[in-house]
């Protein structure tokens, strides 16, 4: 109550001349659910007392670029680009999925393929990655292949990027790709919305848990705004409307996390990129 009151005073003080808060989104969530995003944006505007803009681009890379150049204030992106740009980007919060700020990378194949047991079985196949800047959608499977002394380029006949986890699921479901690497959280969330689509895929492997794609603050975000956004995110599960939005996101809430949560991704990054 007191919090809300303070919020309202902030609205009164800041609304007039502050520039909008710009948040860059990547396909770490089902970012094509426009109606949901619009209601979430309004929620944030109401809670922050400031105009909020969501920015989306074709790939992770473009959002990362915008973040590094300070053209967005915050970005929700994968742990992989975060660990590569730790110096410029600050961890703000990570979503809580099934009780923990962690997720997995899924290896999926078409449901008709009942043979494949792991990534190595897909040798000579057509493989779909989601994004070269995605941990679950590229880094992890590439690292697995490296451990087997090969690489995607050599192991598969053809690979391609879909620039989105949802599209990896589509490509595999339609048989365009014979295998794909996808964000487990996206797959699980899509399974609730479009079970007939995920039903045409089969999960072959689930990776170890990684730190969930975090919300990061860019150099453009001043400390007060960071604090305000953090508080709104952390308190989302306290209001009815916030809980509805979290439910739509298939998340439990947000929590502050330590950089160490992403150590496993740092290791993979070092293995593959260097």
């Amino acid at each position: 109550m007191v919090f809300l009151f303070v919020g309202l005073i902030i609205v009164g003080n800041l609304h007039a001349d502050e520039r909008p808060i710009r948040i860059g989104l990547t396909p770490v969530i089902l970012e094509d659910q426009l109606r949901f995003l619009e209601s979430w944006r309004r929620y944030l505007e109401q809670e922050l007392g400031r105009e909020v803009q969501f920015l989306r681009r074709n790939s992770y890379g473009e959002i990362v670029d915008l973040a590094l150049r300070g053209q967005v204030d915050f970005a929700w992106l994968c742990g992989f680009p975060y660990v590569r740009n730790e110096g410029a980007l600050d961890l703000l919060a990570a979503p809580v999925f099934k009780g923990a700020p962690r997720y997995q990378s899924y290896l999926i194949v078409p449901a008709s393929d009942t043979e494949t047991r792991d990534l190595m079985d897909l040798e000579g196949g057509i493989f779909a990655f989601s994004d070269p800047n995605s941990n679950s959608g590229w880094l992890y499977p590439e690292a697995v292949l490296r451990r087997h002394a090969t690489s995607a380029e050599r192991h598969f006949e053809r690979t391609f990027y879909t620039w989105g986890h949802r599209r990896v699921i589509e490509a595999v479901a339609h048989g365009l790709a014979e295998g794909g690497a996808v964000d487990g959280y996206v797959w699980e969330t899509l399974a609730r919305v479009e079970p007939e689509l995920t039903g045409r895929t089969r999960i072959v492997n689930r990776s170890d848990a990684f730190g969930f794609p975090p919300v990061v603050a860019t150099p453009a975000a001043d400390p007060a705004t960071r604090q305000a956004v953090l508080e709104v995110l952390l308190s989302m599960d306290e209001s009815e409307r916030g809980r509805q939005l979290l439910e739509a996101l298939n998340l439990d809430g947000f929590q502050q996390v330590e950089p160490e949560l992403y150590d496993s991704i740092r290791r993979l990054s070092r293995e593959v990129v260097q």
Partner: peptide
């Protein structure tokens, strides 16, 4: 661009 996904889409 060798963008298989876009072509297919």
């Amino acid at each position: 661009r060798d963008d298989l996904w876009s072509v297919w889409d």
